[in-house]
Design a protein around this nucleic acid. Structure first.
Lengths: 213, 213
DNA sequence: CCGCATCCCCAAAGATACTG
DNA sequence: CAGTATCTTTGGGGATGCGG
């Protein structure tokens, strides 16, 4: 196991976890890899401001801890990709809780907020996928299209969606956080979509994370 | 809301969460406050290596984010304490997941590992309290004594414990992680204790965190 | 182009001394 | 007790270089 340069030096599972993924950028790299392998350059592009040396160092660290693995794609794609190991993928529930907790004080997106490519699939994967009821949902938000089918998230449209949500990022925010439907266009099975939203808003404890502040 | 000096500048709930609690030491301070208010000096004592300026800066940051609050104790105790707000206490499920994830690669304690005071109550609070069945459990581990009664954790012994676990830190580790009972002394209702262990080992997803690597 | 390694500079973290 | 002030060290951000 590769060790961080400044470990906390406490025998504590939380301190140990933070020694592995507590450094700056580490969990955002994990976030990028949550729904599929990515190349070094794509990681760099989706993490504005990271600096190539830091990205390389973090990847080496995560690899040393058994959280990510580096694979060489079969020819003719002569590039290499990073992907989460099962141990790294076990961080998903943590990312989900962290996202719900952060969302409760994030506020709606401003018009000038920069959205990185793939954010919608990312959001669906973290927030909806683990609790999605049977059915297929398609989201068309701010130019991105992604769908949740049987608890699996895919980039792009669904084949025969039971419900389609269309709008911008602020509309999706108000739909999910505030339960306001007027800022998005919903077609199809509204009741099923409502079940999805309710399931997602109910964090593991049974209390909506948004009611805690 | 107080802002971190180097924000990630992404509209993403995870990035926003990390802007609040992602800096070094922040989550360990939250850990210290998880099961009750503490004074500045006690925080400093339980976080070896933190440096007083960093502790002061982090507390100010956490206070500005609405995660901790500073209270002055009523006379004659003329001191002040820090405690989690409801918003800060909502981090508990995250800390629990993080602890279970970290525990799966932590390994048993070495003989020379330093244990900070209150670690046992902390561990019980994070790992057992949210899932504890009815009943009262008393733990006497490595000089510390704490108990779980009706899902609540208290420092010190239980009044009429249904089960008592006695031993050292390594024994508790092997009991919980490996399911080996021979390194601790258990008296009372072993079946009830087993239910507690099973409930705790089963993380939110239904899979024991320890099987993922 | 992709995947880093190197270099420089500044800001944050560590250590210690000191003060209301 | 509860921090602030100061100094040193180190990690991070940004630009650039360089082999494959």
């Amino acid at each position: 196991m590769r060790s961080v340069s400044k470990p906390y030096d406490q025998y504590c599972p939380i301190a140990h976890a933070l020694d592995m993924v507590g450094e700056r950028w580490s969990l955002l790299i994990v976030r990028e890899l949550l729904h599929g392998p990515k190349r070094y350059t794509d990681l760099s592009a989706n993490l504005p401001g990271i600096g190539t040396n830091i990205l390389a160092a973090r990847l080496k660290m995560l690899e040393g801890c058994g959280i990510v693995a580096k694979h060489r794609l079969p020819p003719p794609a002569a590039s290499q990709v990073y992907e989460l190991t099962p141990y790294g993928a076990a961080l998903k529930p943590i990312m989900r809780e962290l996202a719900l907790w952060g969302l409760s004080s994030l506020g709606p997106p401003k018009a000038d907020e920069e959205m990185f490519p793939g954010w919608l699939g990312n959001a669906l994967d973290v927030v909806f996928a683990p609790v999605a009821p049977d059915g297929s949902f398609e989201f068309r938000i701010a130019g991105e299209v992604a769908s949740v089918v049987g608890g699996e998230v895919h980039e792009g449209p669904a084949a025969e969606p039971d419900a389609v949500v269309e709008g911008d990022a602020a509309g999706l925010y108000h739909l999910f956080v505030d339960g306001e439907w007027q800022d998005v266009t919903v077609t199809g099975d509204r009741a099923l979509l409502e079940r999805l939203l309710d399931a997602a808003a109910t964090a593991s404890g049974g209390t909506p994370a948004f009611a805690t502040r």
